[in-house]
Design a protein around this nucleic acid. Structure first.
Length: 291
DNA sequence: CACGAGACCTGTTCGC
DNA sequence: TGCGAACAGGTCTCGT
């Protein structure tokens, strides 16, 4: 469930109390149960269990795709990767399937980390700085201006798609929202970052921020049951819409492969950049019958 | 510095 | 219907 809008939605749901569950803030951790050793990145299981016991949640924050539970004497950080998710449920109800870590809280609640693919990672640290320090700017922060973004683009010579997926360049985008932002900016994913002119750089900056804000408003994108409750799937313009008509020009959305990732584009709105000599074109992944 | 391949995992969908 | 291949929201490490 893991891009910025989904993590932000989760953060907000844990901060405020609703019909389904109370706010996490103020709840105390009574014990922990680890279901899969490698889910815990640091510290080791014994130190983790001892240290987290008795801690109270004071805040829930986010940086990029990382979700941070601020505790009275430490910070619990999670990265959901491909299939991770947190569930706050009553102590009396069974733990979710694929539960990798479960925290028993007071007042009869339990916070469980489920993760079918076991890619997710959790840290319990004194200081979040070492993890957060490697991340690029926060795309929705006021400090992330169009000028700053254009300078960062110009400083690199990379194709836009893998560059935008690089969390040290910009924190929070994943495969869905990179494709959506590039489509909004009418830019092909193979365009080189230093070749964007000023209007194109600004359009990309705007596309990124618009799609993230809109996705948060719709509580993120849900499909395949990995992350539930989001309503943004039906508003996506290219992601997972191979063969559908582009909302802007009616051309058929194509799926190509860029940096080993399935990538969705409108071939009319997002024309391929001029090839340099010897550079292979993006691979055409359509099945023979579709060509 | 930039890129591709492989690894880490399991569940679901696709193609024949 | 059944079976293996391909594919999935992410990131790390290694070799070129």
């Amino acid at each position: 469930m893991p891009e910025l809008p989904e993590v932000e939605t989760l953060r907000r749901s844990f901060l405020k109390s609703g019909p389904a569950h109370p706010s996490l803030v103020g709840l105390k951790i009574l014990r922990s149960d680890l279901g899969w050793r490698r889910t815990l990145a640091a510290p080791g299981p014994r130190i983790f269990a001892r240290r987290i016991h008795g801690q109270t949640v004071t805040d829930v924050s986010r940086r990029g795709k990382l979700l941070l539970f601020r505790l009275s004497g430490a910070v619990l950080i999670s990265h959901l990767r491909m299939s991770g998710g947190w569930v706050l449920h009553r102590q009396s109800t069974p733990r979710p399937d694929y539960c990798r870590l479960s925290l028993q809280l007071n007042s009869g609640w339990r916070l469980s980390f489920r993760d079918p693919r076991k890619f997710g990672r959790i840290w319990l640290l004194d200081d979040a700085g070492e993890l957060l320090g490697r991340l690029g700017p926060e795309p929705l922060a006021p400090a992330f201006t169009a000028d700053l973004f254009r300078r960062r683009l110009a400083a690199r010579r990379r194709r836009l798609k893998p560059l935008l997926l690089d969390q040290s360049f910009l924190a929070g985008l994943g495969n869905i929202y990179v494709d959506e932002a590039l489509h909004r900016a009418r830019l092909h994913p193979l365009t080189l970052s230093h070749q964007l002119d000023r209007p194109a750089g600004v359009a990309l900056w705007r596309g990124i921020r618009q799609v993230l804000r809109e996705a948060i408003r719709y509580r993120g994108t849900s499909f395949d049951g990995v992350y539930t409750g989001g309503r943004y799937l039906e508003r996506l313009r290219v992601y997972r819409r191979t063969g559908c008509a582009c909302a802007t020009c009616q051309a058929r959305i194509q799926r190509i492969l860029v940096a080993q990732r399935g990538t969705h584009i409108c071939p009319h709105c997002q024309p391929a950049p001029a090839l340099r000599p010897g550079e292979p074109p993006a691979q055409d992944l359509r099945r023979p019958a579709e060509r």
